[in-house]
Design a binder for these strands. Structure first.
Length: 543
RNA sequence: GCGCCUGUAGCUCAAUUGGAUAGAGCGUUAGCCUCCGAAGCUAAAGGCUUCGGGUUCGAGUCCCGACAGGCGCACCA
């Protein structure tokens, strides 16, 4: 339809004698009185054409030849907008086409042939996932879903590090708890991992080995076992949120595969580094940063920057067209150097999109709960899922823009879960399922053919219009990396459906009308189901 | 001190990437079940979009400057 109008406007501009190179854009007006599509082309061209924008709009309209069975209304308005309203018949035709491939409705192929990678969670196995990780996980997974729905070939990847100081401390924490289990009372440093899960791992080791590990080093079985158990827990938590990674990338493989050394050689060759005070410095000040940064410490150990850069370089070598990093705002300072370095190495850093999400603030009984993995006072993601359910967790993390701080009031989420917005959406789906069941009982749902022309009530046409917006909504959510707009959209779908349901009976004595309205219900359920699939929440038949 | 994010109804947040009269949920108030699911629907009240400048046909949205909150600013990750 946009294309149709585009052609007519171009022809009209030609007739008027305006031959500027312009791209004509259409938008859906907020006000329903302004029609179904609007263009601001006259406003844009007015100055160049040396005309008043209102007059120009009228001129363009006067020279357009429009089929008014499809577009019964075309008029200029306001400062020079041109508004078009489509006929109900046009929408009915679109709706019939939509029903032909319900299961794939919403899928588009703009990303066809493109390989995308989404890297998210990437928490090191030092403890259970927190609520903060939860936002990262759900957001990343949904971005991946959106990319899949727009035709990309997507790899979800989890990057982790099981070496270094943090992991040594973890191993030693377990070792000390193990000794406690054996009856010793070693002093347990304050900056060690305090969580109860450390004791559990220690107990498992005691059960399995007795006191045979008394002289084992922290880096041995303790660390190994801690990593294994914690990682299993993390994966279990992710699975409960329907998140499945295609790939786990161990930072250590960059060392064992020689990628770190290779990168350092490359840096030296390009003279992007220099030696000073026994350390190796990256000339980040030449790459837009305030000062140079150390990438290899004087101890010979690399800082996190070096493997990070090497990892991103690897991503490029794997041939991705789009690489997305999901990071919490506490890592905000880490990525500019990585991107600058990648660029300096000759890669197209525009292919990397870094999405920073803000923190989740947990409110319990009106109090802010400060989160720290090392201290014991955090609320785990598991506990949250246990309390309010996976659907609510996913939906809550997705309903806000990733750039905004998220307040998660635990008390509210627990107590008022019945009034949670996610239920509003799921209720619409369950209600439709119930209507269909009712129709079956009445022996009315056997035949799926129907006469579209029977759908003529305003609530019916409104519903059709909203459903038809689904594909472009998915597309814009994907291209803007903003899943929260999908939750908004689905909320509208549910709202418009409830309104329709309230005003009109679906299953009635009129068999033909019943068939038509059942078709409308089926279409609505499909959009909801497909939308839920992207958000990763369930589509219940009953609630 | 510097960088990034945020500031919109009493509270939590949207706003079609610069469009016409800024919208939802919760909460408050008043209505709607003989009837396919009331976890629903209808209506009311609630706003100087933190403040001050600027850019243009047009600004909650872009630019500059204040103010407030969050996160960072290592030879930690």
């Amino acid at each position: 339809m946009k294309r149709y109008l585009w052609e007519k406007i171009m022809a009209s501009l030609k007739a008027i004698g305006v031959d500027e190179e312009v791209t004509i854009t259409f938008e859906k007006p907020r006000q329903p009185e302004h029609g179904d599509l609007t263009t601001n082309i006259a406003l844009i061209l007015a100055k160049k054409a040396g005309k008043n924008s209102r007059d120009l709009a009228r001129d363009i309209l006067a020279h357009m030849e429009i089929d008014n069975t499809l577009v019964p209304k075309a008029e200029s308005a306001g400062p020079g907008f041109i508004n078009f309203a489509f006929s109900a018949e046009f929408y009915r035709q679109q709706f019939v086409a939509m029903l032909k491939n319900e299961a794939t409705f919403g899928r588009t192929d703009g990303g066809k042939g493109k390989k995308a990678q989404v890297e998210f969670v990437s928490a090191n196995p030092t403890g259970p996932l927190t609520v903060g990780h939860g936002r990262n996980a759900v957001f990343g997974d949904t971005i991946a879903n959106l990319l899949e729905w727009t035709g990309h070939e997507v790899t979800r990847e989890y990057y982790f590090n099981n070496a270094g100081r943090q992991m040594r401390v973890l191993g030693d924490s377990v070792r000390l708890r193990y000794l406690e289990e054996l009856g010793d009372s070693p002093s347990f440093p304050e900056d060690y991992y305090q969580g109860e899960y450390i004791r559990e791992i220690a107990r498992h080791l005691k059960k399995e080995y007795g006191d045979a590990l008394r002289n084992e080093s922290a880096e041995g079985r303790f660390k190994e076992r801690a990593e294994k158990e914690i990682f299993e827990d993390i994966k279990k938590t992710l699975r409960s949120l329907s998140i499945e990674f295609q790939s786990f990338f161990n930072e250590d493989s960059l060392y064992s595969g020689g990628k770190i050394e290779e990168l350092v050689r490359e840096f030296r060759k390009r003279e992007l580094v220099y030696d000073k005070d026994g350390a190796l410095w990256l000339k980040t000040s030449e790459l837009g940063s305030e000062k140079d940064k150390v990438i290899v410490k004087s101890s010979g150990e690399p800082t996190y920057r070096l493997p990070d850069i090497a990892y991103h370089r690897e991503k490029f070598h794997r041939g991705y067209d789009l690489m997305i990093d999901i990071l919490g705002s506490d890592h905000i300072a880490t990525y500019p150097d990585v991107l600058a370095a990648i660029k300096a190495l000759g890669y197209d850093s525009d292919k990397v999109k870094v999405l920073i999400h803000q923190f989740v603030t947990i409110l319990q009984e009106g109090e802010v709960v400060k989160m720290s993995t090392r201290k014991a006072n955090f609320i785990t993601l598991d506990e949250l899922i246990e309390e309010v359910g996976a659907d609510v967790v996913r939906y809550f993390f997705l309903m806000r823009s990733h750039a905004s701080h998220l307040n998660f009031d635990l008390k509210m989420a627990k107590q008022h879960s019945d009034e949670n917005p996610v239920f509003y959406l799921q209720y619409a789906h369950a209600r439709i399922a119930s209507i269909v069941r009712h129709a079956e009982e009445e022996g009315r749902s056997g035949d799926t053919s129907f006469s579209p022309s029977l759908l003529r009530e305003p609530e019916e046409i409104d519903l059709i219009k909203v459903l038809l917006l689904f594909p472009e909504t998915v597309e814009s959510c994907a291209s803007a990396y903003e899943p929260h707009r999908l939750t908004e959209y689905l909320h509208t779908v549910a709202g418009v459906f409830h309104k329709f349901y309230h005003e009109h009976r679906v299953v009635s004595d009129d068999a033909a009308l019943t068939s038509a309205r059942l078709a409308l219900c089926r279409g609505t359920a499909s959009v909801l189901r497909n939308g839920f699939a992207i958000l990763g929440i369930s589509a219940p038949e009953r609630m």
